[in-house]
Design a protein around this nucleic acid. Structure first.
Lengths: 215, 215
DNA sequence: ATAGTCCCGCGGGAAATCCCTTGATTCCGC
DNA sequence: GCGGAATCAAGGGATTTCCCGCGGGACTAT
């Protein structure tokens, strides 16, 4: 596979080139000293993988370059190689389309593993960095205890609550459930009483937190 | 650090015990053959780390045991060791409180690295497994293009849309923005016209997808 | 400059809908 | 059999919705 290295330190570039070229399946076909050069190099050589240092001050930051390159040349996988074990970077970089994140302090084997992983379409995140990713994931997904819900609300109420939250009118709900509008209103009152909600927005928020809004 | 190993294969247990006890900083203080035994062992010995095989058929699945143990003994870190490189498992296991996920096919060094990482409070996910995690993360965070929004809707409309979606009544919105109810109605009409929405639920859905509902 | 367009704000009035209180039925567990 | 909850429902006042229309300010193209 063909690789381009982008790093503002010449020594780092040649060092990694040595290591990589020593591999049978890897060929370093270019190098760049900043984000702009990296973009140009990718445009010219079309590598399979671009290894990019995040902190390249002069031309353009590696982060921005990552976004641009990924947008124009999505086939080139981007592996971020950095000395920051900062969580913030990880998020931004992933959102900008990078496929991997390896610390410069990692052993050579890890770099090679990362390269081969993303070459095959995978994503390589330095395991320790996964912490923040997992935390975010759990946070976004585990808001709902769901348990307390089923204990408090009846079947009917549990059926009506999401509909209200989704913005359906009482009439629509009534038609959908083949009951009277008045009944829907009664249920709604009961729900709000049980859950100690006193306004529609609170109800929407509640439903949202309990993941009842699945459009 | 003190470790308990849970695996239904005796050979696996002794094998790993050998490897781990060979380390200066690790001491295997117990073993279990199923989820129930694992729970009891954790209750008795209070290890720093529990290494758990996911697929233990007889007593109780490792997954469920993980949840129970984590709930009652949150100080014990749980490292999942499995042969499944299945995405589904990863999610469930993380939600149930595991701190690490390592494949049985991984080299010993990786296991040791994982143990030490989670002992220090980190989270270790096998890098290749990060793929699905990242995918989910990006999906949950990048649903909104947000761009098209700001082009279509005016400032005021962009201010009102979320309020409607959140369930606020026209009157409340009017009071909050110091404008007339009639004006709110007008804006609402404009919004629905521009976005081709014809009902309140559609509007809520739209707002939700654009991440405008941030309670 | 003038006309066109968009954003913002406001209003009337009629019909539909929502909100709140009250009450009837049924079913369940004690 | 009796309290309690679930389900259903009506009456009446408050609110929203939907149809209209009005005017001022900003920006643009002619």
């Amino acid at each position: 596979m063909k690789i381009v290295i982008a790093d503002d330190h010449a020594m780092v570039r040649s060092g990694f080139s040595m290591i990589l070229n020593f591999q049978d399946d890897i060929e370093v076909i270019g190098a760049a000293a900043d984000g702009i050069e990296a973009y140009a190099m990718v445009a010219k050589r079309r590598p399979d993988i671009l290894i990019m240092d995040l902190s390249m001050p002069p031309g353009e930051s590696g982060l921005i370059a990552t976004g641009k390159i990924k947008e124009d040349y999505p086939d080139t996988k981007i592996l971020i190689l950095t000395m920051h074990d900062d969580e913030e970077y990880l998020f931004h970089v992933l959102k900008n389309g990078a496929s991997g994140y390896v610390l410069k302090s990692a052993p050579d084997e890890e770099l090679l593993l990362a390269i081969r992983t993303i070459y095959e379409g995978g994503t390589y995140i330095h395991p320790k960095m996964a912490t923040s990713l997992v935390r975010e994931f759990i946070k976004k997904d585990k808001t709902a205890s769901t348990e307390d819900l089923f204990e408090l609300l009846s079947k009917r109420e549990l059926e009506i609550l999401p509909l209200i939250a989704k913005g359906y009118g009482n009439k629509e709900i009534a038609e959908r459930l083949f009951i009277s509008v008045k009944t829907v209103e009664a249920h709604k009152s009961k729900i709000m009483e049980k859950l100690n909600l006193k306004s529609r927005p609170e109800l929407v928020e509640y439903a949202l937190k309990k993941k009842l809004l699945d459009f």
